[in-house]
């Protein structure tokens, strides 16, 4: 079974910025409604294939996109 991860955000603006940055880096991601068990900070989260977790965190850090954490689904 495929294992997904999600990036959580404090604001939707940050989630949308992250989507832009990660897509520009050629990473496969998808904006989804934030899983309720993880957070209620912001209605949107970014889902990705879990093996990409480190690359995604590094890409977001390099682009100075603030996020509220990365979790395995």
């Amino acid at each position: 079974m495929k294992v997904y991860g999600v990036v959580l955000f404090y604001t939707t603006s940050a989630a949308l910025k992250a989507e832009k940055v990660l897509k520009a880096a050629g990473l496969e991601i998808k904006l989804i409604p934030t899983p309720r068990q993880l957070s209620s900070d912001c209605g949107m989260a970014l889902r990705f294939d879990w093996p990409l977790a480190q690359t995604i965190e590094e890409t977001l850090r390099a682009a100075q996109v603030e996020h509220a954490g990365v979790r395995q689904l």
Binding site: T12, S13, L16, L31, P33, T34
Partner: peptide
């Protein structure tokens, strides 16, 4: 509604 609902129309408006 931009940035509220997380479905495709909300996300596209948010973008």
């Amino acid at each position: 509604n931009p940035g509220r609902s997380g479905h495709r129309l909300s996300i596209e408006a948010g973008r």
